[in-house]
Amino acid sequence: MVELEKLNSLMLEYLDPEVRLVLDLGKYTLEAGGKRIRPILMIEVCRMFSENCERVLPLAIGIEYIHMASLLHDDVVDGALTRRGRTSANVIFGNQAVVLGGDYFYAKALWLYAVYGNLKAVELVSRAVMHMSQSQILELSSIGKIISEEDYFRIIDGKTGALFAASMSVGALMGGSPLYEDFYKIGMKVGRAFQLIDDALDYVGSEDKLGKPVGNDLREGKCTYPLISVINQLDMEWVAERFGKEGREELRQKVITLGGVENTKRRAWEEVEQAIEYISKFENSSTLVDLLESVVKREY
């Protein structure tokens, strides 16, 4: 599996801005760490089909730039104070600089795809970014509301699934496989599983490991799968009095007691097992299978 140290080094190398503030912002964001799961997925899918995957590295870096840009913009939209256990970039550099810095990350990603990819790779990643943007707007409009399971998956399929889909699809494409559209669908399932686990951990995770307080989604008025999965067992008036309000801790504990977290983890496994069943058919898939399992086994 590709080394994180190499990825982090390349991410700083390819950033190469002319304005010092953009570099400072990039370094600060990179130093916050991250799993780099999206670029690693792209590289490992490529390796299943090709022995030479060096050419996919700039595209893998580009996909992480897009992810980083979305996080920077999210923190401005949410008014976040922390990210991965540190003061968020918008607090350090200001909202205006962070929004424009995020724009630079997006632009650099597209430049990398134009230079090192091909037209189909540009189309796949552009499709994902359009899906991401629309779903984030949908999420914003749902703040403070109890939403349906259908709407929840519409949100996370775009917010998280689309970039996982592009990562795996571009990996297959650059590895020479004609099955890149199939891998787009598989990546969507992996992204679903990833977000489901994120939402479960928001209820029961370790604050030290997560780098943020548990119950953050309830505090922000975001209705996620743990709550949705047990909503029929709750009195809606009682929920409304606590959702996004001071009594949210009581609501969080009630969701846990009713099995909302277990329901969420079980659904995550269902999604990723479908992906593993498909991936396992290919030679040299063991590393990728292990990576997919780690998506749902993680604690942060």
Results as ranks from 00 to 15, higher is better:
Ser9Lys: 15
Leu10Asn: 02
Leu10Val: 00
Met11Leu: 12
Met11Asn: 02
Met11Gln: 05
Leu15His: 15
Asp16His: 15
Pro17His: 14
Pro17Tyr: 10
Val19Ala: 13
Leu21Ser: 13
Asp24Thr: 07
Gly26Ser: 14
Lys27Glu: 12
Tyr28Lys: 05
Thr29Glu: 15
Thr29Ala: 11
Leu30Tyr: 13
Ala32Phe: 12
Ala32Trp: 04
Gly33Ile: 04
Pro39Tyr: 10
Met42Gln: 06
Ile43Val: 10
Ile43Thr: 02
Glu44Ala: 15
Cys46Gln: 00
Arg47Phe: 10
Arg47Met: 11
Phe49His: 00
Cys53Pro: 03
Glu54Phe: 12
Pro58Trp: 06
Leu59Tyr: 01
Ile61Asp: 04
Ile61Val: 14
Gly62Arg: 00
Ser70Glu: 02
Leu71Cys: 04
Asp74Ile: 01
Val76His: 05
Ala80Gln: 06
Thr82Arg: 12
Arg84Gln: 14
Gly85Arg: 00
Asn90Ser: 09
Asn90His: 04
Val91Ile: 11
Val91Trp: 12
Phe93Ser: 07
Gly94Phe: 07
Gly94Met: 09
Ala97Val: 11
Ala97Ile: 03
Ala97Lys: 10
Val99Asn: 06
Gly101Asn: 02
Gly101Ser: 10
Tyr113Arg: 04
Tyr116Val: 01
Lys120Gly: 06
Val122Leu: 12
Leu124Tyr: 07
Ser126Trp: 11
Arg127Met: 13
Ala128Gln: 01
Met132Tyr: 08
Ser133Pro: 03
Leu138Pro: 04
Glu139Ala: 06
Ser141Thr: 14
Ser141Leu: 09
Ile146Ala: 08
Tyr152Trp: 08
Tyr152Val: 00
Arg154Leu: 15
Ile155Met: 03
Ile156Pro: 00
Thr160Phe: 07
Leu163Arg: 02
Met168Arg: 03
Ala172Trp: 07
Leu173Pro: 00
Met174His: 01
Gly176Leu: 03
Gly176Thr: 01
Pro178Ala: 15
Glu181Ala: 09
Lys185Leu: 15
Lys185Phe: 11
Gly187Glu: 07
Leu196Lys: 03
Ala200Met: 08
Leu201Pro: 00
Asp202Cys: 03
Tyr203Ser: 07
Gly205Met: 03
Asp208Gly: 13
Asp208Glu: 13
Gly211Val: 00
Lys212Phe: 08
Pro213Lys: 15
Asp217Glu: 11
Thr224Ala: 07
Thr224Glu: 10
Tyr225Ala: 09
Leu227Asp: 05
Ile228Asn: 01
Ile231Thr: 00
Ile231Asp: 10
Ile231Phe: 09
Gln233Val: 01
Met236Ala: 15
Glu237Trp: 03
Glu237Leu: 09
Trp238Pro: 04
Glu241Gln: 14
Gly244Ala: 06
Gly244Gln: 02
Lys245Ala: 10
Gly247Tyr: 11
Glu249Thr: 04
Glu249Val: 05
Glu250Gln: 14
Arg252Lys: 13
Gln253Ala: 11
Ile256Trp: 07
Thr257Met: 08
Thr257Cys: 10
Thr257Trp: 12
Gly259Gln: 06
Asn263Ala: 14
Thr264Asn: 07
Arg267Val: 02
Trp269Pro: 08
Trp269Gly: 13
Trp269Asn: 12
Gln274Leu: 15
Ile279Ser: 10
Asn284Tyr: 14
Glu299Tyr: 10
Glu299Ala: 10
